[in-house]
Design a protein around this nucleic acid. Structure first.
Lengths: 191, 191
DNA sequence: CGGCTTATTGAGCAATGCTCAATAGTATGC
DNA sequence: GCATACTATTGAGCATTGCTCAATAAGCCG
């Protein structure tokens, strides 16, 4: 097995496991056993346990972002609608995964200058980047869009909360979010 | 030292420590050493390591919520303004603490029926409860208010992000958030 | 085949989560 | 004031686990 495959295999195992429990509780023993390799090998691919965890979470972030990217040629509000639809659908289908991703996180460094990357917030930044390019929004609007992503994220998570689901389908939710964005922009940036 | 004091002491140590690093990396050895007690004693007060971590994070949540509660007699939009002001101020003053609280979280259970409590989302629910009673909002509006809290939280965190601070003071930010709430309500719930 | 690189192992160390029987210290009932 | 019950506290000890390192196996190129 080539190193590239190994790496992907190990990350894949992490991705499968991290839905069930917080990443930090995923022992390298377990990963090694599942992969059928020795514990020592993991340290050949990842310098430390947390490095492995970060790699897993980063992979999860890339995976989420990939499914959100709107179809080629679609722009403007239609693109935003696609993004929101896919986002809500994904949260709906794999609530545990997304929940674990956002809140079952590797902690952030207190000083922001640390080497660690905040992948959950990084994902928000990426999504808001998607939206901004789709709508042609410029720099001073990005904070608002960023916070709007947090808003959509929270609504989607609430919507899929077991037992508390208000409304049947996802359509009103998507409508609400898409309609909100221009309203926010009209409200003007908080600066 | 009475058990009540002990408990508070141990939680206090956790509260101080969990700003610097993710809670999960706080070893019981360290806590025991700092408290000047044996490791075994910790298991007399908390059944397991994660139980201790959860207790610490829950205490942090109570602490945050306490500072947000508006003054007696203040209601309506004025109360909302107070809440937002204090929230932003708190995030501003102790960014690391709040960041660690929301995102450096103990992971959530995949199945929602698990015994664990989601304290970060629980805090959001509590804050939105504060806002709803202040404004007299009824049940169908709560999801929107909840998501609005997420919006405010994200903006506040962005605002204190080192280097990326747009705008000088917190006033425009507070204005923006307070103004947004009735707009959201007017937009109607997504159901 | 011989030699180089590297993926891989396995032993071993130290930290740490956790258990448990023993102890010390305190309050209570008489 | 004494004995009893209770519990806070300890310390030894076990198993897991993050991590290191020297040794080995396995490919690859000449």
């Amino acid at each position: 097995m080539t190193p590239e495959e190994r790496r992907r295999q190990l990350l894949g195992i992490g991705l499968r496991k991290f839905v069930d429990r917080p990443v930090q509780e995923l022992s390298l023993d377990e990963v090694a056993a599942e992969a059928g390799v020795s514990r020592g090998l993991l340290f050949h691919y990842f310098p430390t346990k947390t490095a492995y965890h970060e790699a897993v979470v980063a992979a999860a972030g890339r995976r989420v972002l990939r499914t959100l990217r709107p179809d080629d040629g679609v722009t403007g509000e239609a693109a935003v609608r696609q993004i929101v639809e896919r986002f809500v659908a994904q949260v709906d289908r794999r609530r545990g995964f997304y929940l674990a991703f956002v809140y079952g996180q590797i902690g952030l460094p207190a000083g922001a200058a640390g080497p660690r990357q905040d992948v959950a917030i990084g994902l928000r930044r990426n999504i808001s980047g998607l939206v901004c390019t789709a709508m042609g929004y410029a720099a001073p609007l990005t904070p608002v869009v960023h916070a709007w992503v947090a808003y959509v994220e929270d609504l989607a998570l609430q919507h899929t909360e077991p037992g508390t689901s208000w409304g049947a389908g996802t359509a009103p939710l998507v409508d609400h979010c898409v309609a909100l964005l221009p309203v926010l922009v009209a409200l003007g940036p908080p600066a």
